[in-house]
Structures are given as C-alpha cells and as structure tokens.
C-alpha cells in the first residue's frame, strides 16, 4: 500500500519538477516573442540597418532619429572597461585566495567578496557619484567625473564577486597531481601557477569573463546615475555615455505609447536580450566542454 502511495507521490513530484523546467523555458521564449513582436514593425519601418548603424539617437526631434550605435557603443565602452579592470584583479584575487592565502584568511576573503555581491547596486551608484566621480574629475581635469570610466570602475566592482568565485572554483578543481608534477620538476610556485594551473583552469576563466560581461551589460540604475547619461558616440572612456539599459530606464516613463520611440525601446530590449543570450551560451559551451574533457 505505502509503496503504491510512494510511487504516486514520486510521479507527482517528477511532474512538478518537469513543469517548472518547462515553464521557465516557456517564459524565456515568450519574452523573446514579445520583444520581437513589439519591435518588428519598428525595425521594418525605420530600416533595420539605419537603426543599427545610425550614429544619432534623437528620438523626440522632428524628424526623429533612432540610431542605436551610440547606445551600443556606450554599453560596449562601459562593459569592456569594466572587464579590463575586473578580470586582472579578479584573477589575482582568485589566485591569492586559492593558492597563497593561509586557510583562516581564505574564509575571511571569500566571505568579504560575497558581501560585495550583496551591496545593492544603487548604493554602489550612489558611492560612485559622491566619491568616484569627483576623483576622476580632479585626476583627469574634466568638467565632470560622470564618464564611461566611472561606470566601468563601478561595474568592475559589481562583476568582481562573480568573476572571483568562478575562477577560484576553476583553480581549486585543478587536480593536485598537476601541481605536484610541476613542483617535483623544480618549478617554483609562481611557474607552476603560470604554466600549469592557469592553463588548466582556462575554460573556467573564460566562463568567468563571459558571466562577468553578462552581469555588467545588464546593470542599469547605477550606470544611469554615474555615466553622465549623454547619448553621443564615445571615443574615449573619459566621455559621458549612455548605455542600452540606461536608455530604456530613462525614457520608458515618458515615451508616448504606440509611438515609434516606444517601439524603439523594445528594439533596444531585443538587442540586449540577444547579447546576453549569446554571452551566456558561450560561457555554457566553454564550461560544458571542460566537463567533457575533464
């Protein structure tokens, strides 16, 4: 009797888990369809190429111009800046934690980095405006410190926990025998790290970079606060920029429903969706390949 009941219960749990999985995938598909549907006519009407390559974002001029390029460049500058800052520091921190730090310090550092992830991004944005922007302003003698660089530095902080913990994981899972082999050949600790441990952990490092990018590119409010928010084509990190995300956040509230401007924001959303999707896919593939070769 109880056995039958257990069987039945198991079936129900199985079905529930299956359903949750399906629903999650379904929601993603629905969001994609929704974004696609809302922006499709916009892309047709405004000519997709002109939009993607347009250098002017003047959505409320007459006639309006819907060039995404400054926004995409804004996101690219801020993201690349953040990654260029976060990856070396993240790699160094992960190496220190997993290879150098004594056991008691290891736990403290790991907790500290997790705490960094717990700071609400709006708070970081706030600190960025009050502390970071003036520093940048004075250091580079700019009119305003609210620049792509300020956004990059702040986003680097946000991406750091993800990057450090994934790289640290990858390094820790490098078999001890590799390290022993290298040391037994007379390699120094540093040579062992550089020539054996980092190459062995490389897929994990790539995945960390990808997920870091994913984390950074989707960030909105803090970036809106600190990057100066000017939709112009940037040429250096010391200019104000406006990212894709900040554009949606800033303009969605005031846009006239049903206007081309309104649909253009969905277009931006679609672009963002595709970018993050591709990045996550790459991270997944790299991690998956590591497991197969394992």
């Amino acid at each position: 009797m109880t056995r039958m009941k257990n069987r039945f219960l198991e079936k129900i749990i199985e079905a529930a888990i299956f359903l949750s999985g399906i629903v999650a995938v379904l929601i993603v598909v629905l969001i994609f369809i929704f974004l696609f549907k809302e922006s499709f006519s916009f892309f047709v009407k405004e000519n997709m190429l002109a939009v993607l390559l347009g250098r002017n974002w003047y959505p409320i001029s007459d006639p309006p111009q819907f060039g995404f390029l400054p926004l995409m460049m804004g996101s690219l500058f801020v993201t690349m800046g953040a990654i260029v800052i976060a990856v070396p520091f993240g790699l160094a921190a992960a190496l220190y934690i997993s290879e150098v730090a004594p056991a008691w310090l290891k736990d403290i550092l790991k907790t500290g980095i997790e705490l960094l992830a717990a700071i609400p991004s709006i708070v970081l944005g706030f600190i960025g405006i009050v502390v970071l922007a003036p520093l940048i302003k004075n250091f580079f003698h700019l009119g305003s410190g609210l620049t792509a660089l300020a956004g990059s530095i702040m986003l680097a902080f946000m991406a750091m926990p993800t990057i450090v913990s994934i790289i640290e994981d990858a390094i820790t899972s490098v078999p001890r025998s590799y390290k022993q082999g290298a040391l037994a050949l007379g390699a120094t600790h540093w040579q062992t790290i550089r020539r054996v441990i980092i190459p062995a952990a490389f897929p994990g490092i790539i995945a960390a970079v990808m997920l870091g990018i994913g984390r950074v590119i989707g960030e909105t409010m803090a970036v809106l606060m600190i990057t100066g928010n000017a939709a112009i084509m940037p040429t250096t990190l010391l200019q104000p920029v406006r990212t894709l995300t900040a554009t949606i956040a800033a303009e969605m509230g005031e846009v006239i429903r049903g206007s081309s401007h309104y649909y253009s924001l969905f277009g931006i959303g679609l672009i963002l969706f595709i970018i993050t999707f591709v990045i996550n896919l790459i991270a997944d593939l790299v991690l998956h390949r590591r497991r197969i070769n394992g």
């Binding site: 078999p175 025998s177 590799y178 022993q180 037994a184 050949l185 007379g186 390699a187 040579q191």
Partner: peptide, 26 residues
C-alpha cells in the same frame, strides 16, 4: 632528483609542451 607518481600526471598540455616544460622553466 626527478619523481614519477603513482598515477600518471601529465600536464593538460600537448605532448610536446609536457616535455618542454622542464626545459622552459629552467
């Protein structure tokens, strides 16, 4: 004084680089 271990532990590098390893570090 070189050492071989119980379980073979080549580095996850190419065959060539495994042997070149010691030559390079020294």
């Amino acid at each position: 004084v070189g050492m071989v271990f119980q379980r073979p532990n080549p580095f996850p590098l190419s065959i060539f680089e495994n042997i070149a390893f010691g030559l390079r570090i020294h």
